[in-house]
Design a binder for these strands. Structure first.
Lengths: 106, 106
DNA sequence: GAAGACTAGTTTGTAATGCAAACCTAATTA
DNA sequence: TAATTAGGTTTGCATTACAAACTAGTCTTC
């Protein structure tokens, strides 16, 4: 597949800005609770919640709910697949960009 | 704004895979006709058409329709703003990635 | 010269998306 | 005990992105 085709076919689950931010943040944090993640990404609770659910369904993120004292607390972390996927996505972007720069019309 | 917030706030008009592909292809081609662009990106005519319209409305792409002999022909090229925008977007991605890699939880 | 096929797109219909606002449950504060 | 805050989830809606259907005109073939 040619470079521009590959760009057009990027996985939107990961590429979408909010989820790209979540996954990238988690890859730097190892584990983060809901509110910390919300502050980091600037997302509203509603959006963060639904994006996390989507990432969890896709098997990229693990969600663990616990009580800290009496207060519910949600921890999110990357699964092995999630970690691989976000790393690969950034690498792909880098590669695609440089391939595109080298490309000449034929 | 912190790095993950910036990722989450990436301009979706440009970031969307199909349009990222179109803009990137145009930045390498200087000018391209509809069918050439379609082959490059692998998009269907319908999608290419509507994405081009959206990019034109946003002032990133210039569309010129002409007749080549008797056959209608559509040429697309980047406007100055479009060229700046796609270049800046890729640079931002690069910067954001490396900022994210350097980032440590505080 | 009419029927069909092809070219070069645009418009339409629909399902999925992302967002914010409303909602929920429990804990804390006044 | 009434209001406020914490920590989220669900709902409703407007926007999207896609493919399929359509349009307008050209070329081929008989």
């Amino acid at each position: 597949m040619a470079v521009f085709e590959e760009i057009a076919a990027l996985d939107r689950l990961i590429h979408e800005p909010a989820r790209l931010a979540i996954l990238t943040a988690l890859s730097a944090c190892h584990s983060a609770d809901f509110l910390f993640l919300q502050r980091l990404t600037g997302l509203t609770k509603g959006n963060l919640s639904s994006h996390l659910s989507k990432l969890e369904e896709a098997g990229l993120v693990k969600i663990e709910k616990q009580f800290v004292g009496k207060v519910p607390n949600t921890q999110a972390s990357l699964t092995a697949r999630g970690r691989a996927a976000i790393e690969r996505h950034w690498q792909r972007l880098e590669t695609l960009r440089s391939d595109a720069q080298r490309w000449k019309p034929s």
